[in-house]
Nucleic acid binder design. Structure first.
Lengths: 344, 344
DNA sequence: TTGAAAGCGCTAACAG
DNA sequence: CTGTTAGCGCTTTCAA
């Protein structure tokens, strides 16, 4: 593999000159530039990334810490993030963690390894201590779908979205509106619970324990999955005649699991139980699920834009952005006519 | 940020010694090791990744080139790859590309930038030329869901899977069995087409153009998406009385789009049209779709295992692994009783 | 406009 | 067992 010395020798110039044309630096005469360019091409020369990082004190790499992304939400977000990062000419290194403490390990490493120029933290909480460390070390970080006072944060309005969803159900006239949530370790799960409670309160209804079921799987996941929705709904249906006629489920994929449970018990959506989800994943449309749409792609893009600003030195304080969610009304609440043959 | 000199000074040793304890090298007396460790802890020292890479000529980083992963298949695969990579103590950098020529750009960069120790190439073809370059440069690479003579390849048996799916439909007694495929630029799309044709031939049936529709969207994607399935099915249904009664769709997500089209035309699955998909994504179960299951996680894990072997110097030739697909029979072909209330 | 030289922080070979 | 030293390949002064 050719290095910068080979190029310099072949072009008959010093390595400094080669470096300058590489970095499009000014003040290079056209003839020399041409010679260097020719040598580069002839030798198939490409600068060595690690050497550049070391010399420049900059990696041209962004990191992204994200919970294990089985879910559609993470996949889509990651996709947007990757695209945008690459548009900026940067590489993306992916750290995925469970909700447990491994997160801290990654943060510590990221902070000290100088592996990346900036970090995106997705759907994950950050402690005050680590927030301070990032600030002190001036390592750019932006939170996505999460929030911290001192750090740039981009979030979707989980609380408000849950409020809207719950209110929708209440306004439809359902008496008891239940909620199935993800693991309360998860930030969005907690926020959605708040919105749910607030909507209840706003309409003079009491929060009842028996109508709230959070995912209690003890695994590493966030509880936003089909199984959790299925078992959560079963629990609700086991209330028998007391069972709720409407339920706000905190993610579409769980909602689909919940609908399966309803079906397996010989009941129907929305006749027996109305369901609202959250996310608006692709399948939501297919199954006719009323849900709260999140602008996932926009979030990812904005996050990278902002992170790159920070990396490039724009350090004005306190960038907070909140995206609104949008209620997408389909058939699962009975608000529109029921479709009969949506499936096999 | 403390560097190795600071640590050495504080511990009262040379930097070589610090390096040795860092790299768990042998022959360090316990007292010195303790001193060094103490200094490291006191200074919150972490080695500088770029400097290590430069000196070691090794990055401890794996790369993964993957088509834009909207689809569930890529998300799941990537998830497995990331987990496994991190188990090996390596970082993962993500390159995602469209099916067009940007791929070449990435390959070229990967080859010369020394950014990664090895590369996973997912669902993407590689030309002989690039294959040779990787070999010549001894840059480890393993193909996943793709194949090249000279390179380690792990694939699912797309051809055979498509054959099985098609045969299933034929054996069920359907006369005309159509196929809806992804973009023929995509490797799996082409292989599945082959399997389909072979199954037809094996049962003495002619391949008919009008019963085959490939995604002709001209965008960057692979055509494995709902819209493509929807419009493909519409095309088939437009054949009127000539329309096929059974169709093999080359991915589940397309199959779901196809089922939507069927529904929107007032027809039913499987009564009017039987459908088999490919992938067995999570939702397939929900919608009762008969499909071919791929062992996605296993593929991802095996790929990383193998790549790490290569990176660590095991260079025996020719590692090829093919995973079989499995026919998962549900309701969309009429092979089992029809469920009536799968949806809202 | 250009060349020379001094690092960037670490590993590894070489003495001792 | 441990200290010293010579790179790894590049960027960036500093002179010229």
């Amino acid at each position: 593999m050719a290095n910068i010395y080979d190029v310099a020798k072949r072009a008959g110039v010093g390595i400094g000159t080669v470096s300058r044309v590489l970095n499009k630096s000014s003040h290079i005469s056209d003839p020399t530039r041409q010679k260097v360019l020719a040598a580069i091409k002839a030798l198939h020369y490409q600068p060595h990334t690690a050497a550049q990082s070391l010399a420049r004190r900059r990696t041209n790499t962004l990191g992204c810490v994200i919970p294990f992304f089985t879910g559609n939400f993470f996949a889509q977000l990651l996709c947007a993030v990757q695209k945008k990062t690459s548009e900026f000419g940067n590489d993306l290194v992916l750290y995925s963690v469970d909700l447990a403490n491994k997160k801290e390990t990654f943060l510590r490493r990221v902070l000290s390894e100088k592996r990346v120029d900036g970090l995106l933290l997705v759907s994950l909480e950050i402690t005050d201590e680590y927030a301070k460390r990032f600030l002190r070390q001036k390592l750019p970080i932006v939170l996505v779908d999460s929030f911290h006072d001192q750090l740039d944060s981009i979030k979707v309005d989980n609380d408000e979205g849950a409020h809207t969803a719950t209110t929708h159900l209440i306004k439809l006239g359902y008496d008891k509106v239940a909620m199935i949530d993800g693991q309360l370790k998860s930030v969005p799960a907690r926020l959605r619970l708040e919105g749910y409670k607030r909507a209840l309160a706003d309409h003079g209804r009491a929060f009842e324990e028996r109508y709230f079921v959070a995912c209690d799987f003890t695994d590493e996941a966030d509880g936003f999955n089909r199984e959790a929705g299925y078992s959560g709904m079963l629990q609700l249906l086991d209330l028998g005649s007391q069972r709720p006629r409407a339920v706000f489920v905190s993610s579409d994929i769980q909602a689909i699991g919940a609908m399966e449970a309803i079906r397996d018990r010989g009941l129907k959506v929305p006749d027996d139980v109305a369901v609202v989800g959250f996310d608006d994943i692709e399948l939501a449309q297919y199954v006719g699920l009323t849900t709260m749409r999140q602008p996932i792609l926009e979030m990812g893009e904005l996050a990278v834009d902002r992170l790159m600003e920070l990396v490039r030195g724009k350090r004005e304080k306190d960038f907070k952005h909140r995206f609104a969610t949008e209620l997408i009304i389909r058939e699962s609440c009975g608000a529109k006519r029921r479709l009969d043959h949506r499936l096999v």
